[in-house]
């Protein structure tokens, strides 16, 4: 794959303290791409959720593993891939579920992160990672935002 000028690759320890660093890098990158403020916040949130899931679920809270992010721009598509080398995620956890409006007593714990990813991005693909683990590719069309 040819590297484009806007592409960025981050390899980050699976330490929750570093999520703020990832968010900071992402904010600036999205600003450079000219994405407007509300959309930027949504993308930052969804990517944070993907990274949090790697730490919490794939790595079961271990902080000495690696989360990889690839941020790229191809024409009008912003594409962000988050991958890990941890325990494979069961498919029922990553299947699309529409966001519903529950009553307070109906709120189900868990799964909100994945729902937010589907809510924010135009295209979402969960697949096994290149060398084991998990991978999610999230795409947003700048024109449609």
């Amino acid at each position: 794959m040819d590297r484009q000028p806007h592409d960025l690759r981050l390899l980050v320890n699976s330490d929750p303290r570093l999520l703020g660093v990832i968010r900071g890098v992402l904010q600036v990158w999205l600003e450079i791409l000219g994405l407007e403020a509300d959309r930027r916040s949504e993308v930052v949130l969804a990517v944070d959720e993907a990274c949090s899931n790697c730490i919490r679920h794939a790595y079961e809270g271990r902080t000495d593993e690696r989360v990889e992010l690839v941020l790229s721009l191809a024409e009008d598509w912003i594409e962000i891939t988050v991958s890990d080398q941890g325990a494979p995620c069961p498919t029922e956890c990553t299947e699309f579920q529409p966001m519903e409006r529950p009553a307070a007593h109906e709120v189900v714990p868990g799964g909100l992160g994945v729902k937010l990813i589907y809510e924010v991005f135009d295209e979402v693909v969960f697949c096994p990672g290149r060398s084991g683990g998990n991978c999610v590719t999230m795409r947003l069309n700048r024109q449609m935002s």
Partner: peptide
């Protein structure tokens, strides 16, 4: 705004 935004996205703003 950040808090309301995520609650609205999650459809949990009215609980």
């Amino acid at each position: 705004h950040a808090v309301m935004k995520v609650l609205e996205l999650a459809r949990l703003d009215s609980i």
